[in-house]
Nucleic acid binder design. Structure first.
Lengths: 215, 215
DNA sequence: AGGGCGTGACGTACACCGTACGTTCCTCCG
DNA sequence: CGGAGGAACGTACGGTGTACGTCACGCCCT
């Protein structure tokens, strides 16, 4: 019946597929097992527990990031590319994004993006301390942005547009929110993300800790 | 036996206390009920379901932010203050932070910080569109930062220092990570956050969309 | 060739979860 | 005094993660 012999990779793939199809809290050992046409406890032959499975999901998704890093390009273009590449997981695997972001994993899949980013920042003229600083700043921004894009749909929801209902806001208490309710209600995530990335690039370009003129 | 007559506020308070004491996934209706010396189903007389309870927790924590906003101060100082105030919840309620951050709530408690921030940014010389943009940038950064500070401890963990074990990294594959492993292993969250806030303030101070000279 | 053994799939069992439903009791108002 | 409404409660159901014991199969070594 089951053609393939069952493996950690197949289990993780089934989990990813299930999460994207039905949301993160549809994931249960029984559900995944039945998805694979397999007994529940057979999963534990390849995965120590559910947490490790979710780690596997995060790692799998993260490792699919398509980095096309060109060490010859200008550092700002490299930063742009890496930020965009990282963001694309939020489009390919929107419902797995929370997992990738909330579980910090200490595996090579998580280290590779860090390595590329550090190399880029070093080439931009930062020393080690500041490269790490700036990297953490970027990661915080990216993580926060992805959470906004994706957190709108915690598990499932009918788009849920206009979370801020203009009608229910007291203009006396919240004049600004009330006046800007249209802007707050909708969000062009793409443009918002690009705005942030450009502003950050501009900011670190003029940062005094950077030694100008490198690469 | 039970002196107080049980209320939504008491239930939420017990949940917050329990989360801070034993972590987010120690929360169950039965656990909270027994914490209050009360039957499980009695909770449902004051709270429609568990999700609403968690929303209540997030709202409660969020509403405790101590804003001491001074409309007369320089906008950069106001931004600094607000960012710091927001971050303090990560210290007072570290294990609730994930809830505050991952559940977006459409209640006044969530709107008030937004209102203050928008007012500040308007006073800094941004029009509505850019005020919202910049606010979203700040929120993304703050959320990402708090998640790093707190996400290190998903539920419980023995500090878990040195997540990046310098010994296990192949210097061939990850030269930068290997060289900077000490820096990556430890993190002064306070300093890191301040660095980000200052850089962002500096960046928006010189941003062309801002009309110079206001307040 | 045959026996031992590791491995992987499986079923059962347990403690716990959220919550729908029906019951009881206490209080307050007419 | 009697009725009504709300609050606390107990029971029950379907679902969860996983510890444990069992079984069949293929490989290796004698």
């Amino acid at each position: 019946m089951t053609s393939q012999p069952l493996s950690r990779a197949r289990i993780v793939a089934a989990a990813v597929e299930l999460i994207e199809r039905e949301g993160a809290d549809a994931v249960s050992m029984r559900r995944i097992a039945s998805e694979l046409g397999v007994g529940v406890m057979s999963l534990y032959n390849h995965v120590p527990n559910k947490g490790a499975l979710l780690d596997g999901v995060a790692e799998s998704v993260l490792s699919e990031i398509g980095f096309t890093d060109d060490p010859e390009a200008h550092w700002s273009d490299r930063v742009r590319m890496q930020a965009r590449a990282f963001r694309q997981i939020a489009h390919h695997y929107p419902r797995c994004t929370m997992l990738v972001v909330s579980r910090q994993l200490h595996t090579d899949a998580g280290l590779l993006p860090v390595e590329r980013a550090l190399a880029t920042l070093r080439s931009a003229g930062f020393d080690g301390v500041d490269a790490v600083r700036v990297l953490r700043l970027f990661i915080a921004f990216i993580v926060g942005s992805l959470l906004r894009e994706v957190g709108v749909t915690p598990t499932f929801a009918p788009v849920h547009e206009a979370a801020i209902d203009a009608e229910k806001i007291d203009p006396e208490l919240f004049p600004e929110v009330s006046a800007l309710s249209e802007l707050l209600g909708s969000c062009d995530h793409e443009a918002e993300f690009a705005f942030g990335v450009e502003l950050l690039i501009q900011a670190i370009a003029v940062h005094p800790a950077r030694r100008e003129g490198t690469r």
